[in-house]
């Protein structure tokens, strides 16, 4: 945002694509922490084994889904010096993973 408007082919001196890539990395790390805590909650839960296992597996699937979205976006960012913007489908997929984790978490907390 700051700095002179560079020609399209030139590298952005503000390193915006790199900063965005690192923001995705940080977010995947946060989601990893949440997945580990969800796993701990599932393991410690005293509910029916089937329900708890299903919730735990779903949380893991959400984590993998989030990693996949982040990976594809990071590859998209690296593909050109002037990367295309985030498409809403990826944003919604990332948020969907988070929301499904919350739904599983609510179930686990109530059962625990």
């Amino acid at each position: 945002m700051s700095g002179a408007a560079a020609p399209a082919a030139e590298r952005d001196p503000g390193l915006q694509p790199e900063r965005t890539r690192l923001a995705w990395r940080r977010t995947t790390l946060s989601s990893t922490v949440v997945a580990v805590l969800a796993g701990k909650t599932a393991v410690a839960s005293g509910g029916p084994v089937g329900v708890v296992a299903a919730a735990g597996v779903l949380c893991c699937a959400c984590w993998v889904g989030f990693l996949a979205v982040a990976h594809r976006r990071i590859r998209g960012l690296a593909s050109s010096p002037v990367p295309a913007g985030l498409v809403p489908r990826y944003a919604v997929a990332a948020v969907g993973c988070v929301v499904v984790t919350v739904v599983c978490g609510v179930g686990l907390v109530l059962r625990g």
Partner: peptide, 16 residues
């Protein structure tokens, strides 16, 4: 594109 990327980073910050 830099504005779009900044918006994306704000989105990710809220997601974190």
């Amino acid at each position: 594109y830099r504005f779009s990327l900044a918006n994306e980073r704000t989105f990710l910050a809220w997601l974190r």
